[in-house]
């Protein structure tokens, strides 16, 4: 995808390519299918009635948040462990964490709406809810740490350590409903016995949501990772310009003595 620059002379490229167009189109189609199945075609639940429709956006949002934080941790480990210490892994980690925070945030909000209908309250200090909020805050902190000063490699090292610690909370969040007496229901699909507690159109609608949101994640993470490349390139150019300016000043001062 080409954009005309401010000067309007040389075309420049933004973060879109054929790959992002394909993922973006598939994600948009997936979201349209999700809305059709989630809001119209899937039946109401016997116990939860119409409020079960929130599940088709709540569960996929939580899944993408887990996936995003997992990718952040793996990319962080690859940055630290590989001898090249490539900033590509660091940017992938940062991009994925930002999108994970977005999806974790909407998971919390949709969970509150669903909780109001199921339990009568928006929030309760239940183990699953509290740990999910803690995971959200941990990765918000991760994003804050990425914005501290220093070089790009200093940023990468300190945030990688935090990501690898933060991701350890995910199994705790997922199994919290079994470890403690939780108000939150047990896993519906990712069950230990491998037998989903949903059938027919409801299970299909949930899988449509999982696929659509995974495609959305891939599309967003490619764009965000490329935007981080641009931000780092501008930082480098700014630093180069400042060094040239400083050397010119030093040369002038030296010549004046």
């Amino acid at each position: 995808m080409a954009n005309a620059p401010a000067g309007g002379i040389t075309p420049t490229h933004d973060t879109g390519t054929r790959v992002t167009q394909v993922f973006g189109t598939l994600a948009a189609l997936g979201v349209a299918w999700l809305c059709a199945f989630g809001l119209l075609f899937s039946p109401a639940d016997r116990d939860q009635r119409e409020s079960v429709r929130i599940m088709y956006v709540h569960v996929p949002s939580a899944w993408v948040a887990y996936l995003a934080f997992g990718v952040t941790a793996v990319a962080s480990a690859l940055y630290l462990l590989r001898s090249s210490h490539s900033l590509t892994w660091d940017r992938l980690a940062g991009a994925s964490a930002e999108i994970g925070v977005l999806f974790m945030g909407v998971t919390l909000v949709t969970g509150m709406l669903w909780g109001r209908l199921s339990w009568g309250v928006f929030w309760t200090w239940d183990a699953r809810l509290t740990l999910t909020a803690f995971l959200f805050v941990t990765f918000l902190g991760y994003l804050a740490v990425r914005r501290l000063g220093g070089t790009q490699h200093q940023r990468a090292k300190r945030s990688a350590v935090l990501a690898m610690l933060g991701v350890l909370e995910i199994p705790l969040v997922h199994f919290s409903v079994r470890l403690w007496r939780s108000l939150h229901q047990d896993a519906t699909v990712a069950r230990i016995d491998g037998d989903p507690d949903l059938d027919g159109l409801m299970l299909f609608s949930l899988f449509v949501g999982l696929i659509a949101f995974t495609l959305l994640y891939v599309w967003l993470v490619i764009h965000r990772q490329r935007a981080l490349v641009l931000e780092d390139a501008l930082d480098d150019h700014g630093l180069d310009a400042a060094l040239v300016e400083r050397r010119a000043e030093a040369a002038l001062q030296g010549g004046g003595r």
């Binding site: 954009n3 620059p5 401010a6 420049t12 490229h13 933004d14 973060t15 764009h223 490329r226 935007a227 641009l230 931000e231 390139a233 501008l234 150019h237």
Partner: peptide
């Protein structure tokens, strides 16, 4: 990203 892309 589009704004940044014009400067890089």
């Amino acid at each position: 990203a589009r704004r940044l892309a014009r400067r890089v």
